[in-house]
Structure formats: structure tokens, C-alpha cells
């Protein structure tokens, strides 16, 4: 039962990543692409957690936490740059 659920969840997350790549490619404006990139960060965290479940190891959670922090910081930095023309004023 757990194997089947893991396969279904992996398939859904991979389809979500494909949709994010589509929006990242065609996105008409810069904030659209930024939103797609931020969602890709979150979906890749989900993918890493599922990989940890698949391999039955807990070593991937530090990587997931690192990706979460880097995604948040980079999104905020690009937003500040677009809003103010500068990151640290």
C-alpha cells in the first residue's frame, strides 16, 4: 500500500514540476517566472522528502531545509530588486 501511494505521489509531484517548467518558459512577465521558480523550489523539497522515504534514510532532510531557506532568500532578494532597484539600501 505504501509503495503504491509513494508512486502516485511521485507521479503527481513530477507532473507539478513539469507544469512549473511550462509556466517558467512561457511566463509573460518577470513576476510570473519568479512565482514559477518559487513553486519549483517547494516542489523539489517535496521530491527530496519522497526520495528520503523511498531510500528509507533521514539524511536528506538537511538538504530539504537548506533548499527551503535558499528559495525563500532568493525570492525575497529578487522581489526587493524589482521593487526598489536595489537589494540592500
Amino acid at each position: 500500500m505504501l509503495d503504491t501511494a509513494l508512486w502516485i505521489s511521485l507521479a503527481l509531484i513530477v507532473m507539478a514540476l513539469a507544469l512549473n517548467v511550462y509556466r517558467l518558459t512561457i511566463g509573460p512577465s518577470l513576476p510570473d517566472r519568479l512565482l514559477a521558480l518559487d513553486t519549483m523550489y517547494v516542489n523539489s523539497i517535496a521530491l527530496i522528502v519522497l526520495l528520503g522515504l523511498w531510500l528509507n534514510t533521514k539524511h536528506y532532510f538537511e538538504a530539504a531545509l537548506l533548499i527551503a531557506m535558499l528559495g525563500f532568500i532568493s525570492t525575497v532578494a529578487v522581489c526587493k530588486y524589482l521593487l526598489r532597484g536595489d537589494i540592500i539600501e
Binding site: L2, A11, L19, A46, L50
Partner: peptide, 21 residues
């Protein structure tokens, strides 16, 4: 319960990306 949470999480993430697209 674990299988339910896994499938629910995948479905929610997929619906979010579908809305964004």
C-alpha cells in the same frame, strides 16, 4: 494514514501547480 497523507500532499501540490499554469 501515511498513504492517505502522501496522496493528499501530491494531489494538493499538483492542483496548486495546475492553477499556476
Amino acid at each position: 494514514v501515511i498513504a492517505f497523507f502522501l496522496i493528499a500532499g501530491g494531489a494538493f501540490a499538483f492542483i496548486g501547480s495546475l492553477g499556476m499554469t
